[in-house]
């Protein structure tokens, strides 16, 4: 009898050590990620690096739009929904998603852009608000040429629009009509429009500012990564991974990995996002 008990105990101990050992080595499970197309490249890179370390985790990553991220988490078709804003709070145009938890991915700076021929270099927040709400309609009113201002906006649901409206325009309601107003269907169309329209004003991710356009200072502060980090330039937002409740298991391991030093100082920086640790 005693012998059997000892053997049983030994076997149990052996098995439990084995189990603990296995758990410490890798996690397993499956993670589905859906949402923001702006965060998609970063998520794909994270998937590559994470599954190399944890081969027993099956991951599927896709990108459609910011709002589809929290939506698919709420419907249970994805464990992580990427979103360009914190979907657990109310933002202009979108109600909060109750029960979802926001986990930061990286910070994304945005810039106000005008055509490179435009002499204006700086706008105050009030001037921007007045331009986007239609109170100021001529560049001469803000120290530029005597020319009408062409307001270029992004479509409803764009993460860039949500962040820009909240941070640069203080949540103001943007005009919806007029001959000098248009909505661009993507960042690419926004860039091309500002590049080819002499009197246009628009906004875009800072990393997409290229030739033919220039980024304006905001309240006298230039839009640079350094100014975002020292908090003098306020037009930026975090990208988020939304989860249903606090993350657990493989999902938690993945989020920890994305927020960890290796990934933040590696892929996040390389892809020109700002690591979350950089902003105090």
């Amino acid at each position: 009898m005693k012998k059997i008990t000892i053997v049983m105990l030994a076997v149990a101990m052996f098995l439990s050590i084995f189990a603990i050992g296995a758990q410490a080595r890798t996690v397993s499970g499956s993670i589905t990620i859906n949402g923001s197309s702006a965060l998609l490249p970063l998520m794909l890179q994270a998937k590559k690096e994470f599954t190399a370390r944890n081969p027993r985790v099956k991951m599927a990553v896709s990108g459609t739009s910011s709002i589809s991220g929290p939506q698919s988490v709420r419907r249970g078709v994805a464990q992580i929904g990427t979103c360009d804003w914190d979907a657990s709070t109310n933002v202009p145009g979108f109600k909060k998603f109750d029960g979802l938890v926001a986990n930061k991915v990286a910070a994304i700076p945005f810039a106000t852009i005008v055509n490179s021929a435009n002499p204006v270099n700086n706008l105050t927040q009030q001037q921007l608000i007045d331009i986007y709400t239609g109170k100021i309609t001529n560049w001469s009113q803000v120290g530029g040429n005597d020319a009408p201002i062409v307001v270029v906006n992004r479509a409803f649901g764009s993460g860039t629009r949500v962040n820009y409206t909240a941070k640069a325009l203080n949540g103001a309601t943007i005009i919806r009509s007029g001959a000098n107003y248009k909505e661009a269907s993507s960042s690419g169309v926004m860039a091309t429009t500002v590049r080819t329209t002499p009197n246009a004003i628009g906004y875009i991710d800072l990393v997409y500012v290229t030739s033919g356009m220039k980024a304006l200072s905001f309240n006298g502060v230039a839009p640079t990564v350094a100014n975002v980090i020292n908090k003098s330039y306020p037009i930026w937002g975090y990208g988020y991974m939304m989860t249903k409740g606090q993350p657990t298991g493989a999902t938690k391991a993945f989020i920890d990995f994305v927020q960890g030093k290796t990934f933040q100082n590696g892929a996040v920086k390389k892809m020109k996002f700002i690591p979350i640790g950089a902003i105090k």
Partner: peptide, 19 residues
């Protein structure tokens, strides 16, 4: 003058609205 038609409006908005 900038305007919208059925197809362009669908594609601009369908991704951003709840099901």
């Amino acid at each position: 003058q900038p305007t919208s038609v059925l197809t362009s409006n669908i594609v601009m908005q369908i991704m951003a609205v709840p099901f």
